[in-house]
Amino acid sequence: MTSIAVSTTINGDDVEFLCRADETLLDVLRNRLGLMGAKEGCGTGDCGACSTIMDGRVVCSCLVLGAETEGREIETIEGMANGSDLHPLQSKFIEHAALQCGVCTPGFLMAAKALLAAHPDPTEKEIRFWLAGNLCRCTGYDKIVRAVQDAAAEMRGEGT
């Protein structure tokens, strides 16, 4: 078995790891680096529960090979809060009851963060299409959309 040595950046920290050629970024995060926030809901890129941000773009970490992350910048849910200060999206998800079981929540937060970086004042339609790659079976999405709208307003300094 030949492992590949990879140097990458995760949540702003330099990280080095060894992985096999067939290991996904999700496998590496969960099984080698102890970052369990990304979830495997399908392993085929259909559910978004493993969403992470790579070089500013939302990716399904089950569809990225660990070896592909050489030299990249990875953001995961574990890096979303600033120390003990929750990101506005995190606070608003709790405030709006935008999660029930919560297993999809890390993926939604990653996708929503990327959305608000690209569109600080999104329409409801933009929110719904940006988040269409993330499945939630509990909420019917209503409260998720409202939480993202409210977080966007707060991040724009519009106070609610």
């Binding site: 926030g37 990304a38 849910i77 709790i94 009851a97 999660l99 890390p106």
Partner: peptide, 21 residues
């Protein structure tokens, strides 16, 4: 009333432990 859920912070920070975690 509508207080914040006690498992909310764990679930938005990726710390909540599910079956495979």
């Amino acid at each position: 009333t509508r207080p914040l859920r006690p498992d909310g912070v764990d679930k938005v920070t990726g710390r909540a432990r599910y079956g495979a975690d």
